[in-house]
Amino acid sequence: MEILNIEGAEDTPKIILDKGNGIFEISGRSLPEDCAEFYKPVLEWIRSYSGDSNASTDFVFNLEYFNTASSKLILDILSALNDVKGTTVFWHYQEDDEDMMEAGEEYRDLVEMPFELKSY
């Protein structure tokens, strides 16, 4: 499968989806003007990956900040990951960022796959 590699910018996150090396990560800031358009390739990639996935997939969110439109798209990504067998989601947040921790806890409550919160 082709690697999806999106460079981060001041209003969009860095994204690497790499089946070969087992790296799946969304990091940085997410406040794009058109969230649906921005995340479309990510959702398409995950949907096609779900038919041919690795034995286990560790999917990492390492977000500093996201807007409410992105929050909906993050839930869509988690829903798509639900169809990928052997997925564990890792939600990284800065130790003193209680809002980002709480956001992780809320997503954990909304999905049914293994979901771990990790502070750094």
Binding site: E33, D34, C35, A36, T68, A69, S71, K72, L73
Partner: peptide, 9 residues
């Protein structure tokens, strides 16, 4: 998301 891209949140 609405046509304008908002989530209502």
């Amino acid at each position: 998301l609405s046509d304008k891209g908002g989530a209502g949140l």
